[in-house]
Computed example of a mutant assay.
Amino acid sequence: MLANWGRTESLTLLAKMLEQHNGVTHELLDEQGSRTGVHYLRALLVSTGVLEERDEHMSRLRNFCQEYVAEVEDVEMRHVLSRYAQWHIVGGRRVGSSGLTSNQDYSARQSVRAARRFLDRLILRGQHLGECTQRDIDRWVLGAKTLTFVHWLKDQRLLAAELEVPERHIDAAVATNDPENHWTLARRLLHDSKSGGVEERVVGCLVLLYGQPLTRIVQLTRDDLIEKWSPAEWCTTDLSECAPAT
Rank of each mutant, 00 (worst) to 15 (best):
M77D: 12
H128K: 14
L11A: 11
L61E: 07
E73C: 04
I217N: 07
L18F: 06
H191K: 09
N4S: 00
V72R: 10
A114F: 00
R117K: 11
G99M: 00
V112T: 01
F64W: 03
D223W: 07
L214K: 06
T215D: 05
Q134W: 13
Y84W: 12
R121I: 08
T176V: 06
A173K: 12
L206V: 03
E19P: 02
N63V: 15
T25K: 01
G37H: 06
V112G: 06
T133R: 11
R125F: 05
A3N: 01
I170C: 11
Q110A: 13
C65E: 06
C132R: 09
K194G: 06
R121P: 01
G143R: 11
L100I: 04
R222V: 11
L129G: 08
V46F: 07
Q212C: 12
V72G: 07
E52V: 00
A175S: 06
K228I: 06
T221R: 12
D224L: 11
S98Y: 09
A3F: 00
M1H: 02
T146I: 00
L124W: 03
L147P: 03
C242Q: 14
R139C: 04
S82Y: 14
D120M: 13
R187E: 13
A160W: 09
D223L: 14
N4T: 04
L29F: 00
M1G: 02
V46K: 08
S102V: 11
R35N: 07
I137A: 06
S111R: 14
S195D: 10
P166C: 00
G143E: 08
P244G: 06
L2Y: 04
A108S: 13
V203A: 08
V218G: 03
K194W: 08
E9A: 14
R109I: 02
N4D: 01
R168L: 10
Q134R: 02
V46G: 03
G37D: 02
W152M: 07
R35V: 08
L189G: 00
V218N: 10
L44A: 09
P231R: 03
V46N: 01
Q156C: 04
V150E: 15
A175D: 01
L2F: 01
R62V: 09
H169Y: 01
W229F: 10
W140V: 05
V165F: 07
T8D: 03
L129W: 13
Y210H: 14
L225Y: 10
T36R: 12
G92I: 00
W140G: 03
R60V: 10
T236P: 03
L129H: 05
V150R: 12
K154Y: 14
I170S: 13
E56R: 04
G6V: 02
R83T: 10
N22C: 01
V150F: 15
L124N: 09
L225F: 15
L61A: 05
L122V: 15
V75G: 05
K145D: 07
C65N: 04
R116E: 12
A161D: 02
L239F: 11
T36K: 07
A115P: 10
L124I: 03
M58N: 05
Q86T: 10
E56Q: 09
E233K: 11
R157N: 12
D136S: 05
G211N: 09
G96C: 04
P166W: 00
R83W: 10
R222N: 12
E199H: 14
I123Q: 15
G126R: 02
G37W: 01
E31F: 15
A114S: 09
A3S: 05
R78W: 05
S59H: 09
T215I: 12
E56F: 00
E233S: 13
